[in-house]
Design a protein around this nucleic acid. Sequence first.
DNA 1: TTATAATATCAAATAATATTGATATGACGA
DNA 2: TCGTCATATCAATATTATTTGATATTATAA
Lengths: 102, 102
Amino acid sequence: MIIDATNISKVLSDPIRYKILLMLMNHQGMESLCLSFGSEGVCNCDIMQEFGLIQSRVSYHMKELTSSGLVREEPKGKWKYYVLNKETVRNYIKQLGSDFKL
Amino acid sequence: MIIDATNISKVLSDPIRYKILLMLMNHQGMESLCLSFGSEGVCNCDIMQEFGLIQSRVSYHMKELTSSGLVREEPKGKWKYYVLNKETVRNYIKQLGSDFKL
DNA sequence: TTATAATATCAAATAATATTGATATGACGA
DNA sequence: TCGTCATATCAATATTATTTGATATTATAA
């Protein structure tokens, strides 16, 4: 897998995105907070609630996160569930390690 | 040591800075390219030459790199030599690893 | 179908970063 | 000291990213 280290870095550099990633991390395999449904995973509305952000802002950041490969989308019905893609973080780290011979 | 992961990410996210870091990496313990002197390390002028950048631009990016802790300065006479601080990269990686339980 | 809820997109405003050229500072050596 | 070279800083501008509110999609349920 090809990793663009500066691109992943850019995505990680936004505090909100970083916090969203941590949230996804901590909800691995847990129930959605989403009030209306008890499905697996974290959806847009969970993130809006958690951080008090408006919808389009969350949407923007989730696009950054998914298009970088840090997060995977799982659409279910009209919802979209997001799951952290640890593999990308691992590959990013691997890339840094090899670039900087750590 | 305290690592601000989003801050390090921001610094790493600029392609020029990333390339400068790689350059420092690859010149660990080698002679300066600096034409006038054969001292250890990489100085401002080496970076200017290598990437064809003007002085103030290099200065700006080196400040970003040093103030984040990714690079150490070693002033010698009127020159400033820069050395990669692998420790910071390592700590950054460690932080990611612990945040994302890798 | 139609209504509604969730998410996406868009254009405009704002904010943050990067770049440049000019000038300043600081360290030498003559 | 004075002149020169290396680096730093500054103000202006350019570029890029983020935020917002409005509108568009899309899925589903009634």
